[in-house]
Design a protein around this nucleic acid. Sequence first.
DNA 1: TTGAATCTTGACTGATTGGTCAGGGCTGCT
DNA 2: AGCAGCCCTGACCAATCAGTCAAGATTCAA
Lengths: 218, 218
Amino acid sequence: MDQTETAAKTIAKTDIREENERLILDSAEYVFAEHGFRGATMQMIADQAGLPKANLHYYFSAKETLYRRVVERIFTIWLGAAESFETSETPERALRTYIARKMEMSRTHRYGSKVWANEVMQGAPIIQDYLEVTLRDWTETRIEAIDRWIAAGRIDPINPRWLLYMIWATTQHYADFSHQIETLNDARPLSDAQWAEATETVSRIILRGIGLDPEASR
Amino acid sequence: MDQTETAAKTIAKTDIREENERLILDSAEYVFAEHGFRGATMQMIADQAGLPKANLHYYFSAKETLYRRVVERIFTIWLGAAESFETSETPERALRTYIARKMEMSRTHRYGSKVWANEVMQGAPIIQDYLEVTLRDWTETRIEAIDRWIAAGRIDPINPRWLLYMIWATTQHYADFSHQIETLNDARPLSDAQWAEATETVSRIILRGIGLDPEASR
DNA sequence: TTGAATCTTGACTGATTGGTCAGGGCTGCT
DNA sequence: AGCAGCCCTGACCAATCAGTCAAGATTCAA
């Protein structure tokens, strides 16, 4: 605790690097999302960050390095949020919480979601190993949890895989297709009330859809 | 009817153009889907089509012209398939048919779906007018139809907009994220049986989710 | 067969862009 | 003040790529 000042100084020194890297990563995430990997230029990212292009190359040796860091960061955040899917909860609460968090993430991490979608659509050239190991493990664990609910007769017997895909698809749609959604909403972003209503509707349809009572967990 | 021969001849003449344009459009759809607009090069598309690059420019003046034609073609096919959403049918049959067709399209038009997703994710720079007019009209009509079902007490009172987005998201996910789905399926494409099961599961969850009996419409 | 229209293509060009580099600046410690 | 380590950046280069062009090949009607 009394290291605070020293720590502050030390951090302040290295903070230039830390802070600039974050600034560049944020800018890159935005530009990659809006233009794709090849459509994004280092110049665009530099402009977005308010730095000269050569400075980007001081922190990130190559465009692909920068891109990889962006995608890895997104994946980490995404998995973190997914931890909420706790097997100890009731199915109602577990699913409701998971859907709500993913909807929230679609709202707050729109650009990250788009970069991820882009990467996967193009065959995951950069993060294939994450799909094969981390995502697969996560998925298998959740499938087992859902299968236990089915075995216990708590939800309808459906293949958990298609249920998970449905949740991913629906929630991420609000980030990836935000432009289309806003166009169909008189060119305006969804309001707080609309986000709440959409989240509630998605939860309700899915809960009822697998034989749960949506009212029991509101 | 007796113009057949003459017509065949006439067509055969112009068929070189017709056929090459289709070949190029197909190749372009594939390459644009796998690499995005900027990531795709005219050379890649030419190689895919088995033609020299200069020949592409004989049929399509610019890369953007070619891209626009690809996106327009996809949109047309997509709307065509969507016609099945007939207001005269029962909600069960209308939704079941619509979901089944969209799932089928995700299987047969994977690349087209990806190009569309890419275009919308990047803010629809090319086909914004289609979103504002054609897609909006289509959506409004379907929302009215669903609202009538609600008013008649045939389905639960939910906002039809979120229901439509859910159907779009879920079905298109199988095309756009096919790589992820195949990775999680031991690196193999979904089998006929898996496609059928996924389609049935999606339909069932959505139908039950809005208060319909899935068994009534199988 | 002829000739006009359509189709084909290798070679070229100008513009864009990722990445380099050398030299200059800043910060904080002694 | 002096210096060492990090940070910054304008100018440049090589590679890539969309698009052009002029000359040749093919097709088909008369």
